[in-house]
Amino acid sequence: MDILIIMLAGVVIGNRLFPRKYRKSNERLQVICTALLIFTMGITLGQRENFVEELLSLGFTSFLLFLIPAVCSTILVFFLTKWLMNDKKGRN
């Protein structure tokens, strides 16, 4: 919930106060935060007890259990949005 409140604050500031000329700087800050966030996620994984052993022994089953649901949902959403939402490519 707090994430949504913070994002909403950003939306209001972006809509009312934020100068458009700093748009690129804002995008760069997003890239830095994303990289930091992924790096932090990596640290948490690396510090997880038996992470490498788990990955080696359960990796293939886990791989199938992520790949097939992710692909099925992507295909389904693609056809549903193509059929039901007006914009064919979903682009500007």
């Binding site: 994430i3 913070i6 994002m7 604050a9 950003g10 500031i13 972006g14 009312r16 748009r23 997003q30």
Partner: peptide, 14 residues
């Protein structure tokens, strides 16, 4: 994550 969401919010608001 909070900082990221704030910057994303700004992009949306623009």
């Amino acid at each position: 994550l909070y900082a990221l969401m704030f910057f994303v919010g700004i992009s949306v608001g623009l």
